[in-house]
Structure formats: structure tokens, C-alpha cells
């Protein structure tokens, strides 16, 4: 049965190892870079890191539900990345409102964080979602189903 989970070997290795690396990286950021333990941050980040590693491992191991897990973990990471970008922008705007100016140092800090988040938590999961999008049904299967226009 075609469930849209067919992926090429290149994609499997590339995205599978990418997810594992991203998951491990997030875990390291959490445990080594953040100076304090704070559950509202620790728990979600740890869960996402775990999900990334598991889904990447599943894709690498050719587990049948691997692509589905990858899509879920990518979507979740993308949502978190976008939420972080929103939070960063709002924080910068709030501080600019309070102080009138962020100054060069604080501006550089916000830009640095934003451009660090962007490739890992927005662009990469976005690309992964695109690459792993469900494939259109095979012609034989399509013939048995009504055309999209008819279905509407």
C-alpha cells in the first residue's frame, strides 16, 4: 500500500542524521549552555530534542512510521522556532519601547540569537517538511479515486 512514506536513500540519510544531530545539539544547549534549570523551558526542549533524535533514528533505521514521525517532529520544531522568533521580536520591541533605543550591543545580541535560531529551528524543519511532504498517489491508485475537482 502507498502511504506516502516512501523516501529515497539520500533523503533518509540526510534528514535522518540531520534530525539526530539537531536533537543532540538542542540537548547540549539545554544542559550545557543554559546556566539554570527551569522546568517550563527544560521539559519542552528536552521532549523536542528526544523526538528529533527518535524520529531521525527511525528514518535512518527505515522504520515504517519514520517519515510520519519526521513530519511531526519537524512541524513541532518549526512551531517552536517561529514562537521563539516571535518572542525575540516582541522582547526587542518591548525593550526598545521601554528604553527608547536598544543600543548596539543589545541589537547585536538579538540579531545573533535570531540568526542562530533561523537556520536550525525554522529553515531546516521547513525544508524537511517540504521534502517529506506526502507524495501524490500513484497513477494506478489515482485512477480509482475521483479527481480533486470532482471531489470538491
Amino acid at each position: 500500500m502507498d502511504n506516502g512514506n516512501e523516501v529515497s536513500r539520500t533523503v533518509r540519510i540526510g534528514l535522518g542524521s540531520g534530525h539526530v544531530a539537531l536533537g543532540v545539539g538542542l540537548g547540549l544547549v539545554l544542559w550545557l549552555a543554559l546556566p539554570a534549570r527551569y522546568l517550563p523551558v527544560d521539559v519542552p526542549v528536552a521532549l523536542i530534542a528526544l523526538l528529533l533524535v527518535v524520529s531521525g533514528g527511525a528514518l535512518l533505521g527505515s522504520v515504517r512510521q519514520g517519515p510520519l514521525l519526521m513530519r511531526v517532529s519537524s512541524a513541532l520544531t518549526l512551531v517552536v522556532g517561529l514562537a521563539l522568533l516571535t518572542g525575540l521580536l516582541w522582547s526587542a520591541v518591548y525593550l526598545k519601547g521601554v528604553y527608547g533605543d536598544l543600543g548596539r550591543g543589545a541589537s547585536a545580541f538579538f540579531k545573533l540569537i535570531a540568526f542562530t535560531i533561523l537556520p536550525y529551528l525554522v529553515i531546516y524543519p521547513g525544508v524537511a517538511l517540504f521534502v517529506l511532504r506526502p507524495t501524490p498517489p500513484a497513477p494506478a491508485a489515482a485512477a480509482k479515486e475521483p479527481a480533486p475537482e470532482q471531489a470538491e
Partner: peptide
């Protein structure tokens, strides 16, 4: 005149 403090010549990493 640079906000928030307005003094020229200080060295500030940020306004905090």
C-alpha cells in the same frame, strides 16, 4: 542625545 540617557561619550553595551 542618544536615548535613553542622552549623554555623549559614555561607553554602553546596551541601555540596561
Amino acid at each position: 542625545g542618544e536615548r535613553p540617557y542622552g549623554f555623549e561619550g559614555t561607553y554602553l553595551l546596551g541601555p540596561f
